Simulated scan of single mutants.
Amino acid sequence: MAGAALLEPDDAAWTDALSRIRHDVYHLPEYVRIDAGLSGGAPAAYRYDEAGQVLLLPLVLRPVPDTDLRDAISPYGYPGPVADTADPAFWSRAAAAMTESLRALGVITAFVRLHPLLRAPAAALAEAGTVVQHGETVSVDLSLTPEQMWHQTHRTHRNQINKARRAGVSVVFDDWDRYDAWIGTYHATMRRVGAADFYFFTAEHFHRLRAALGERMHLAAALSADGDLLGGNLFFEYDGFMHTHLQATRDGGVQYADKLLYDEVRRWGRDRGNSIYHLGGGLGGASDSLFAYKAAFAAGRQAFHTWRVVADPDAFEKLAGPPTPEALAGRFPPYR
Rank of each mutant, 00 (worst) to 15 (best):
G168F: 10
F235D: 10
A222W: 01
D24Q: 07
H305Q: 14
A2N: 13
T306R: 01
S224D: 06
T137E: 12
L219K: 00
L7V: 03
A45T: 14
L118C: 06
T15Q: 14
H157P: 06
A315F: 07
A36N: 12
W307D: 09
A45L: 00
R93D: 11
G330E: 01
H207D: 07
D312W: 04
I183K: 14
F235Y: 12
L28A: 12
Y238K: 01
V107C: 05
H243W: 08
S19M: 02
P65G: 03
Q255M: 08
R178Q: 09
R267C: 05
A86K: 11
D180W: 09
R267Y: 05
A315W: 01
G41E: 09
R119E: 13
W91V: 00
V132P: 03
A128M: 05
T306K: 02
Y199N: 12
Y277M: 05
I21R: 02
L114R: 01
R158I: 00
D71G: 08
L328V: 09
T130W: 11
E326S: 15
L18S: 10
R192Y: 09
A295R: 00
P116N: 00
P81G: 06
G269P: 09
F235C: 02
E30G: 11
S170F: 05
L61F: 11
G330F: 13
G135N: 10
V54E: 10
Y78W: 06
R267H: 15
L102C: 09
Y335K: 04
S289D: 15
R336Q: 09
Q160N: 15
P9V: 10
A295M: 08
V32W: 12
A303D: 13
P58W: 00
S92Y: 11
A86I: 05
S92A: 13
D251F: 07
L118E: 14
N274R: 14
H154W: 06
D175I: 03
T306F: 05
P81W: 09
E237C: 10
F200K: 01
F304G: 07
A13F: 09
D87R: 05
V265S: 00
Y256K: 08
D271N: 05
A5E: 15
P146V: 15
A97T: 04
H305G: 03
N233G: 01
A120I: 02
T85I: 03
A124L: 10
Y76G: 07
D141W: 07
W268L: 02
L57W: 10
H205T: 06
G52W: 06
A36Q: 07
G129P: 13
L69N: 03
P79R: 01
A211T: 14
Y179L: 11
H243K: 00
T99W: 02
P81I: 09
E30D: 15
R47Q: 05
V60L: 09
G37E: 11
E8A: 14
A221C: 06
D239E: 12
V132G: 13
V64L: 13
L283V: 14
A327C: 08
D180Y: 06
A211F: 03
S287I: 11
A167Q: 06
A292Q: 10
H205K: 02
P65A: 03
L260H: 07
G232Q: 09
A110G: 04
F316T: 07
G129E: 07
L28S: 08
T99E: 00
A298C: 12
N159Q: 13
R308M: 15
L59S: 13
D263E: 12
R267A: 14
G282N: 08
R331M: 10
A36V: 08
